[in-house]
Amino acid sequence: MFHVITGGSGSGKSEYAENLVLSAGEGERIYIATMIPYGEEGRQRVERHRKLRAQKRFRTVECYTGLENADIPPGGIVLLECMSNLTANEMYEPDGAHERTAEAILRGVDRLRARAKHLFVVTNEVFSDGLAYDEETMRYIACLGAVNCALAQRADAVTEVVYGIPVKVK
């Protein structure tokens, strides 16, 4: 089962995705964290999420770039959050895939799909404010859009979470 969960910022998509994992049956729960904790605010954010997940018996694996090399045991119930961070990391971190970001991410996702019992990927809707940004930001938006389309094509289910309400896309 490969399920993609999308939604805006603060839409409740993380909690929804975690609950999907909890109801996905037996298996080791693995959380792939992609956000690099920059600064005090970032660190606190990560710490808060880590505590919440510990109660739900998740093992956290950090993966900021190079998803295809992530050390993920086979047969687990895997939650990757969030594709918007992973895409930014691959595009801008020194050890990222840069102009081959989308391909690198999709290779990583394909490997995870093959290894995991169930895979849940959280991504982000950043496409609908209508404003034109600088060229670099537009490149990021286009890349995340392409990744999302490719994920959705592969997925068994796609859900958009709107203020905590799951809307079935696929």
């Binding site: 496409f127 609908s128 938006i141 995340l144 859009g145 392409a146 389309c149």
Partner: peptide
């Protein structure tokens, strides 16, 4: 309709 870069 839909957001930018969604394959519309």
């Amino acid at each position: 309709i839909g957001g930018a870069c969604q394959g519309k």
